[in-house]
Design a protein around this nucleic acid. Structure first.
Length: 510
RNA sequence: GCCGCGUUGGUCAAGGGGUUAAGACGCAUCCCUUUCACGGAUGAAUCACGGGUUCGAUUCCCGUACGCGGUACCA
């Protein structure tokens, strides 16, 4: 057990877009696996046929690919423990459930959904709003524990729909050591007899996770904190199946909470507060609902991953920016924070900004091309890359390159003349008229010669250079923004610069 | 209700019996820059509460409060 190879798994159910909390779970699995030279398995938990969503599995795969957190084994690449889709393993689970029945650790239950409903409403009180199918209640239900063996046999023989439930001990203290929280204790009496095998023959999560973790030789199982309450069921299953010595070590990850108030972060919070929650764009094929993702919003995958790593984990130093290699080297489950973390989009933007500034201009240009295309702008990647170099310092998102540099691609449509108008006069007007003709004669339209001629003329006309720079900026950009103004002129080129001066002059005359 | 897990500035968080209780994001002011941003400086802002234990608790123990999660033939 101790010397067993590290094998971890991410086990999503393909029911929709991949939540940022899901990606963080992937990340922690991935880091742990890489650090310990182990395997990272992707297993699709599609045991609920009613919740299956077309395209969700491919979407998850694509998210992992985008983040660079690919699995070593999974439905997409196969592996020694295939198949990796639980629906394709369906036949496997029944024998274990039957085995448990045979050994007296589980039982058949024939209660119909209506009967269960009836039981719950009948037993429901203010003191007990959610009655459980537990060690007391089971004695009064239609199951093989209460029925005579002949009755059970008859029901089975006639193909009566039934489930198999675990028989939880009435009162037993059990505990396990969580890698993050340390010892956690439960009493089995407080947990109900969970269904293990559904009437349709599919296992529930509880059975499938134990069987598959065993069969796939999973050494460490990481999942969200919302699973902590069902840990006792899983512990009992590992015992009852006789695999106790193979049980993986568990870590229950803290939840990612919504920024305002408390509670698990959901897609809805993102819609409401205007930030992405899913890794990539997701369109629900059933409802047609469309949700924006981090990727399409202009986040860089390495920034996204770095940001996620810091949500609930740190290495104990002041370092916040980590390459994936550093994360692999430094990650440890013991340093994961115990409490949930509120998601903060501002901080996420800061991370992205850090990575944008560092990123290669060519690469950013490529990422930005689709946005440009959307705006109906034609430009060479080369040209875009130089623009990127000038504006990326002030961008948090790749898509913001447009906001900070649109005037490189088209003449401004709107001009904010208000900072110029009050101090505008005939001298200044004359300056720009004269300067335009000076520019016309310039053989070298470089940053320095443009700036030089600007300053020379201003001095000779006895106007402060500073008084003219802002007007010039607005002539080129349309407002008080953008990189250094002579850089803009140089990039725009002689023809366009003069054209913009002349156009703005007519606007100022109006 | 019951069970479980949590609680250090607005947010992410380090620390762990004696500290001026780090750092980052955000915010504010200033410097740089005659735009904005970057950068630099400064500042406001924190140990949920009550009992123990102790010479001394933010740190250990016990309660309380609050928050979250679970309580499905969903995962």
């Amino acid at each position: 057990m101790e010397h067993q190879k590290v094998r971890v798994r991410f086990a999503p159910s393909p029911t929709g877009g991949l939540h940022l909390g899901g990606v963080r779970t992937v990340l922690f699995n991935y880091l742990f696996a890489r650090k310990h030279k182990g395997d990272f398995v992707l297993r699709i938990e599609d045991t609920d046929q009613t919740r299956y969503v077309e395209g969700a599995e491919e979407y998850i795969l694509e998210c992992l690919r985008w983040c660079g957190l690919n699995a070593d084994e999974g439905p997409h690449v196969g592996g020694p423990y295939a198949p990796y889709r639980q629906s394709e393993r369906k036949e496997l689970y029944r024998q274990y459930a039957e085995q448990l029945v045979k050994d007296g650790y589980a039982y058949y239950a024939f209660d119909t959904p209506e009967e269960l409903d009836e039981m719950r409403t009948r037993l429901k009180t203010e003191e007990n709003p959610s009655p459980q199918y537990n060690h007391i209640v089971r004695a009064h239900m239609r199951n093989s524990l209460r029925l005579l063996p002949e009755e059970t046999a008859a029901l089975l023989a006639t193909g009566t729909p039934h489930v198999i439930r675990i028989k939880m001990p009435a009162n037993e203290e059990i505990s396990f050591t969580d890698m993050i929280r340390g010892d956690v204790q439960f009493n089995t009496g407080t947990v109900d007899d969970k269904v293990l095998l559904k009437a349709d023959g599919m296992p529930t999560y509880h059975l499938a996770v134990v069987v598959d973790d065993y069969l796939m030789k999973i050494s460490h199982a990481f999942r969200g904190e919302e699973w902590l309450p069902s840990a006792p069921v899983h512990i009992m299953l590992w015992r009852y199946l006789g695999w106790q010595n193979h049980m993986p070590q568990w870590a229950h990850l803290p939840l990612i909470l919504r920024p305002d108030g408390n509670g698990k972060l959901s897609k809805r919070d993102g819609d409401r507060l205007g930030f992405p929650v899913y890794a990539m764009n997701w369109k629900d094929p059933r409802t047609g609902d469309f949700t924006k993702g981090f990727r399409e919003m202009g986040y860089l995958p390495e920034a996204f991953v770095n940001m996620l790593a810091m949500l609930g984990w740190n290495d104990g130093t002041e370092q916040e920016l980590f390459t994936i290699e550093e994360l692999i080297e430094k990650f440890s489950m013991e340093r994961v924070h115990h409490a949930g973390a509120k998601f903060n989009i501002e901080k996420a933007n800061w991370f992205n900004h850090q990575y944008i500034v560092k990123a290669d201009n060519q690469r950013l240009a490529q990422l930005f091309m689709p946005v440009l295309k959307e705006k109906g702008v034609q430009a060479s990647e080369e040209y875009v890359a130089t623009i990127v170099g000038m504006v990326k310092e002030r961008c948090n998102l790749v898509n913001e390159i447009w906001d900070h540099g649109f005037f490189f691609f088209q003449q401004p449509e709107n001009y904010d003349l208000s900072p110029v108008k009050p101090k505008w006069n005939a001298d200044k007007r004359q300056f720009f008229l004269d300067w335009a003709s000076v520019l016309e004669t310039l053989s070298d339209f470089s940053l320095h010669s443009v700036e030089e001629s600007f300053k020379q003329l201003a001095t000779s006309m006895n106007i402060k250079v500073g008084e003219l720079q802002l007007p010039f900026r607005i002539m080129l950009c349309g407002g008080k923004f953008g990189p250094p103004v002579f850089n803009i002129a140089e990039t725009l080129g002689k023809h366009e610069t003069i054209a913009r001066i002349m156009k703005a002059l007519t606007l100022l005359d109006a």
